[in-house]
Design a protein around this nucleic acid. Structure first.
Ligand code: FES
Ligand code: FES
Lengths: 142, 142
DNA sequence: TTTAATTGATACCAATATAGTATCAGTTAA
DNA sequence: TTAACTGATACTATATTGGTATCAATTAAA
C-alpha cells in the first residue's frame, strides 16, 4: 500500500525547489533535470498546481514557475487531495445487509475517526516545514 | 485516495461473518450471498486468509470456513498488509540529488513517523472490536 | 524582426493494480 | 453414488498510475 503516488511525490519535490528560490521564476526544465523528474510529467503537475493557486507561471524566454502560496500553508493533505483525491478509508463498508442505519453506524464512526487522524497528521507536514528540515539536514552533512 | 480496497473491505466483512458464528463452519457461498460479495472473489480471499492462519477450512459437504485466530488479535493493519502490502508512505522520496544521507534524512524521519501513526491507528481496530460495535449498533436500531 | 526558450493545452501510450470470472480436480457427508 | 463443498490456478476486464508526444502561443533577447 503506497500512501503517496509519484504525482504527489514529484509535486512535493517541485514545490520544495520553488520554495527554496521564492520570488524567482524557475523553468520546468531545470527542475526536471535537477530533481530527476520526467519533464512532461512535471509540466502536467505544475499546470495542475497553477489551477489550485499554489504557484504562478510566466511564459516565454526566462519564463518559468514561481511559488505563490505561503509554503507554510501548503500541506501534504492538500497535495494528496489534488493528485490522489480526498482521503477516504472506504466508500462505505458494510453496506446493505449489515448496516441498516447509516447515520448512527458505529463502524462508520470508527472509520471516519481514522480518516481524520490520518488527515491531521498529513496536515502537520507543510512544504515550509519540509524545506527547513531539508536545509538543516544539509548543513549537518556538509 | 482509497485506503481500503475491495480485497480488504470484503475480507473484513467475511471475518465479521465468521467471528459472529465462531466455532461453526460457514460455507463461502452463504457468506457471499448474505454479504453481497462476489463468490469467486471471496473464495480467493478466504484461501489467502487460511495461508495466514486467520481461519481454517473443512472440505466436502457441510464444509466451509471457521475462525481460527482470536478476533481481538486480528487488526485492520494486518489485513491491509495481507491484501495491499505493507503501508509505506513513499518508496523513498527525494532520492539522489536532494537526499544524500539516507540514514540521517530528516524528511525520511517525518515520513516514517506518519507511517507509524497510520499503522497504530489501524491496529486499534480489530475484528473483535468491530463485531462488538456492530452488535451494539444493531441492538439500538432494533 | 527573427529566433530560441519557454508555458498552455491536450492527446496518447505503457505498465501496473484492482476487480471480477471460469474451470477443473479433490474431498466428504448424506 | 452424488451433490455440496474447498484447493488451485488461469483468465479477463477495467481503472489507475506513470510516462511521452505534439503543437500552438508567448516573450526575452540576439
Ligand atoms: S458502514 Fe456504511 S453506514 Fe455503516
Ligand atoms: S527521502 Fe529517502 S533518504 Fe531522504
Amino acid at each position: 500500500m503506497k500512501v503517496l503516488t509519484k504525482n504527489t511525490d514529484y509535486a512535493i519535490r517541485a514545490l520544495l525547489a520553488l520554495a527554496a528560490k521564492k520570488g524567482c521564476f524557475i523553468s520546468a526544465k531545470s527542475i526536471a533535470t535537477e530533481h530527476d523528474i520526467p519533464y512532461q510529467f512535471l509540466r502536467r503537475l505544475l499546470q495542475e498546481m497553477i489551477r489550485h493557486n499554489l504557484i504562478v507561471s510566466k511564459e516565454g524566454v526566462q519564463g518559468g514557475f514561481m511559488m505563490e502560496k505561503d509554503p507554510d500553508e501548503i500541506t501534504v493533505t492538500e497535495l494528496i487531495e489534488i493528485f490522489q483525491g480526498k482521503v477516504q478509508v472506504s466508500e462505505c463498508m458494510f453496506r446493505k445487509q449489515i448496516c441498516g442505519n447509516r447515520a448512527r453506524c458505529v463502524l462508520r464512526h470508527e472509520i471516519m475517526r481514522i480518516e481524520s487522524v490520518v488527515q491531521s497528521e498529513f496536515e502537520k507536514v507543510t512544504i515550509g516545514k519540509l524545506l527547513r528540515d531539508l536545509e538543516s539536514a544539509n548543513q549537518v552533512t556538509q
